[in-house]
Amino acid sequence: MSSGALLPVLILAVMVLTFGALLIVGTGLLGPRKVIKSAAKEMPYECGLPGQETKDTKVSVRFYLTAILFILFDIEIIFMYPWAIQYMDSLKDGSGGYMLGVMGVFVGLFVIGLIWEVKSKALDWK
């Protein structure tokens, strides 16, 4: 099996999706047929309180700010992967110091960004 072939991944994904779909359709068919429809049952579950469908729930800025900061720091980590992979080789052929310097500057910017985020209370979840 040539290592690195992508087709098995697709085959497994299709198998998993059909397995899940069969499960859902199967439980649908196996369950009791005469489903008692009642408004109370259909309402979203809110621990017994009558559902108040307020127009716009209080929108917290924190969620999408965390997602934005996640993207930016994730890319900085992804840039570290190629560097980490060849770090041992560059140590062996003597260019370790240069590699360390290049990544030191990059990680320095990463740390400055992180410190600024923490200090600017962007990540406080109060």
């Binding site: 934005i68 930016l72 890319i75 500057v105 990059f106 910017l109 400055i112």
Partner: peptide, 13 residues
Amino acid sequence: MGVLLLIIAIGAV
């Protein structure tokens, strides 16, 4: 790229 990502992190906040 490192500088760009730093600027965007501060800008988005």
